[in-house]
């Protein structure tokens, strides 16, 4: 057997698996989106029908809010942890990265513990403060799983940032504020864009968290789910899935070309 034959043989199982369980199902899903009563104009319906359009707008808004909040918090915390050595740093870092493996449902539950009827906030504040099932709860849930992902990207980038650049700026007379503005942020920018894209894409497609919290809120994954299970509107569910998948895929492609990270979407 020649070397080349062997190498090609090694790729065969992967090839077969991805054709059978990825390529063909996705093609089938795409075809299914056109098989409804509306035909291919189902994709136009997403923009024409208020129910879907409002869902889309709301999902994008919540995802954008999540992205910017996560970027702000994680960049601050990430730079602080990357640049300072102190007792307990490891513990803080663990706390901030452990939620990476929490499924969205668990995060939803944690938000319920914070802002639900029996939640912490409701117990320690006077009056009736329940926000878990509101848009605020959903936002906090998305933020919960975005913080670790953005943090890891930012810290990886911060470690690669050449400290002598900062030192050079300082020797040239730049104030700490100018150093952040002129050296650190531009250096981190590709990673920040990448991390932002990851956070946005994850929030757009987050099903688990929405499943526990968004019982009364129309966000895209929940609408796909209800169209599929309750309304049996398979064409619309498929069309929404394809559109959502395309958007998140393109975003993550951009993210990866900017920073080379592979942080799981999921949630």
């Amino acid at each position: 057997m020649t070397n080349r034959t062997f190498i090609v043989l090694c790729l065969v199982p992967l090839f077969i698996f991805s054709i059978a369980f990825l390529a063909l199902p996705l093609i089938r899903l795409f075809l299914a989106s056109g098989e409804g009563a509306a035909g291919w104009s189902v994709y136009l319906d997403i923009l024409r029908k208020p129910r879907y359009l409002n869902t889309l707008i709301l999902t994008v808004l919540v995802s954008l809010a999540t992205t910017f909040a996560a970027l702000g918090i994680s960049t601050t915390a990430g730079m602080f942890l990357a640049r300072n050595q102190f007792k307990g740093r490891g513990v803080l870092l663990s706390i901030l990265t452990l939620p990476l493996a929490f499924p969205g449902v668990v995060i939803g539950f944690l938000i319920i513990l914070l802002g639900g009827r029996q939640g912490l906030i409701n117990q320690i504040t006077p009056g009736h403060v329940v926000f878990a099932y509101s848009i605020l709860g959903l936002f906090l849930g998305y933020l919960y799983f975005s913080i670790p992902r953005v943090l890891l990207t930012v810290m990886a980038a911060a470690e690669k940032l050449d400290p002598s650049l900062e030192e050079a700026a300082r020797t040239l007379g730049a104030s700490p504020y100018r150093v952040v503005k002129d050296v650190i942020l531009p250096g981190l920018m590709p990673s920040l864009i990448a991390a932002g894209a990851i956070a946005f894409a994850t929030a757009m497609g987050a099903f688990g968290t929405a499943f526990t919290l968004a019982t009364n809120i129309d966000v895209l994954p929940m609408v796909i789910y209800t169209e599929f299970t309750l309304s049996a509107n398979i064409a619309m569910a498929a069309a929404l899935s394809i559109s959502l998948g395309l958007v998140t895929w393109v975003l993550l492609l951009v993210a990866r070309s900017l920073s080379g990270t592979t942080v799981a979407a999921g949630g």
Binding site: P25, R28, L29, F207, I224, T262
Partner: peptide
């Protein structure tokens, strides 16, 4: 291509699998 499931929400992949199989 095989990295697609990292980007495409699980919900969409599950729908695709359900449609075909």
């Amino acid at each position: 291509f095989i990295s697609l499931p990292l980007a495409v929400p699980g919900l969409a992949l599950a729908l695709a699998l359900l449609q075909l199989y």
